[in-house]
Amino acid sequence: METLVFGCLAVTALTMGWLVFVLGSMARVTFALLAALVCVGGVTMLLGLPYLGVVLVLMTVMEMVIMAVFMIAYMMNPAGLMPMSMVHNRYGAMAIAAGVFLALAAGILLVPWPARPAGEPPADTTFQLGEALMGTQMLTMTVLGLVLLSTMVAAIVLATARGRYDRYGDRLERRVPRDPAAGGTGGAGR
C-alpha cells in the first residue's frame, strides 16, 4: 500500500516536473511546479517526516503564488499565446541532464546500501528534530536564522529603486534629499 502511494507520488512529481518545461502558459507552469513539490512533500511525509512534509507543502504554496505574480510581471509571453521558443542549447542541456541522471542512477544501483537501518526510528520524529535544533544542532539553527535575516536585508537592498545613495549623494553629503517630487522630507530640485 505504502509502495503504491509512493509510486503514484513519484510518477506525478516526475510528470509535473517535466510539464514545467513543456507547457506554454505560465500559470500552468507554476501550478505544475507546485504539484511536483507538493508530491515531494507527500513523499517526505510518507518516509516518516510529517512535520517537514507539511512545512514544505505550505512553503511551496506561498512561493508559487508569489512566483505567479512575478511571472506575469516580468515575462515576455506569460500566457503562452504566442508560440515562441524560450530555450537555448536545448540538446546540450538534454545531454548533460541525461548524463547526470545516468551517473546518479548507476551510483544508486551499484552502491551496496545497508540492508537494514541502523536502529529504530523514534516514535515522534518531530520531537527528534525539535530536540536536535534546540540542542546539538543549535549552531545550524543560528546560522540558518542569520542567513534568512541577511537574505531579507539583501533582497530589499537589491529590489529598492531609489536608495539612500540616490537621495543623499554618493557620500551621503546632501542635507536635503533629492527626490523626484517635493513633499515629505524631500525637496525637488533643491
Binding site: 516526475l14 542541456a93 541532464a97 541522471f101
Partner: peptide
Amino acid sequence: GLFSLGLY
C-alpha cells in the same frame, strides 16, 4: 530524476 529534470 527530479534533479536531472531541474538541471535540464
